[in-house]
Amino acid sequence: MTPRVRVDGQVRDQVSVLDRGLGYGDGLFETIRFVGSGAPLWPRHMQRLEEGCRRLGLPMPGPGVLLAEAREVSHGLDQAVVRITLTRGLGARGYRPPVRPQSTRIVAAFEPPPPDQAAQTDGICVRLCATRLAPQPLLAGLKHLNRLEQVLARAEWDDPAIAEGLLCDVDGFVISATAANLFAVFGDTLATPVLDRCGVAGVARAEVLAAWPHAQVRRIALAELRQADELFLSSSVRGILPVRELDGHALAVGPVTRALQAHWRELGF
């Protein structure tokens, strides 16, 4: 079987041990849900990747090249998750980046997670993680390759009944789940944490904010979050996931969550 991986456009699944992505986490990635040959949120993924390249000083591959390679690796799959990884490429030992980097481009396709209708309908259970996210405004919002905080947080539990973990920053403000963004409904107001100091600004989050233009982007303390009428997570792979329980506190799956799930389906997912 042909590997569903392309490295710099070639069918292979290895990179150099001198690649800065491996040595320093020096790079970015996008995880994109494909339906057939199309990706409903492709423009948002490319917008975020381009912004990340600008902020990190990486050459941005042509979106047309990336789309062609994504379609190659996902060909034959009705649904796929395509991961695009972009590193600064090869470099000498040491933190100083090369003056003219030659990026490494990795495009790989995977089977999507199996459908979980119960999670979509009834909601998921979420726990609070002890791991805190450190502030770094220079990297805030980016989907960079260093995900060690999320790895440590996800290692905190192995209970299959718990679907996600909630992450706060070092000051106790809520930021996100380990692999999804967070939204809360207070009365008739939708809110999501501001991500100016840490966290990943997800493309599904951007889609929700575009669909609900009066939503607030602000700091949310954990105590306030516990008073929310609705909670849901947004993920480009998993969609809109209602939260029915946070650390044993039950929540209703309300009308705002249902409306945004309907919007997600209208996108083609």
Score class of each variant (00 low, 15 high):
T2Y: 00
P3C: 06
R4W: 07
Q10I: 02
D13P: 00
Q14A: 13
D19K: 03
G21W: 01
L22N: 11
G23Q: 15
Y24T: 10
D26V: 11
D26T: 11
E30C: 14
I32S: 01
F34V: 12
G36P: 03
G36I: 04
G38S: 15
L41V: 05
W42G: 10
W42P: 04
P43Y: 01
Q47M: 05
R55Y: 01
G57H: 04
P61G: 11
G64P: 06
V65D: 13
L66R: 01
R71N: 07
E72R: 12
L77C: 09
A80P: 03
V81Y: 01
V82R: 04
I84S: 04
G89C: 05
A92L: 11
A92F: 03
R96S: 08
P98S: 11
Q102A: 10
V107K: 05
A108D: 02
A108K: 05
F110C: 04
P115K: 12
P115M: 04
Q120W: 02
Q120V: 02
T121G: 02
T121V: 06
D122A: 14
G123P: 02
I124N: 07
L128V: 12
C129I: 04
C129Y: 01
A130K: 10
R132A: 05
R132Q: 08
L133K: 03
P135G: 08
Q136E: 13
L138E: 11
L139M: 15
L142E: 04
H144A: 13
R147L: 09
L148W: 06
E149W: 09
E149H: 14
E149N: 11
L152Q: 13
A155L: 15
E156Y: 05
A161G: 15
A163F: 14
E164D: 14
E164Y: 02
L166K: 14
L166C: 15
C168Y: 04
S176P: 08
T178N: 11
A179F: 01
A184G: 10
V185E: 07
A191T: 13
A191I: 09
T192C: 08
L195E: 03
L195C: 07
R197W: 02
G199W: 00
V200G: 07
A201R: 12
G202M: 06
G202Q: 10
R205K: 13
E207L: 07
V208A: 10
L209A: 14
H214C: 06
Q216I: 10
R218F: 04
A221M: 07
L222R: 15
L225G: 02
R226S: 08
Q227W: 00
D229P: 00
S234P: 05
S235R: 12
S235K: 11
V237M: 01
I240K: 07
L241S: 14
L241P: 09
L241V: 12
R244V: 08
E245R: 11
L246I: 14
D247A: 12
G248R: 12
H249Q: 13
A250N: 09
Q261P: 13
A262G: 13
H263D: 09
H263T: 14
R265G: 06
E266T: 15
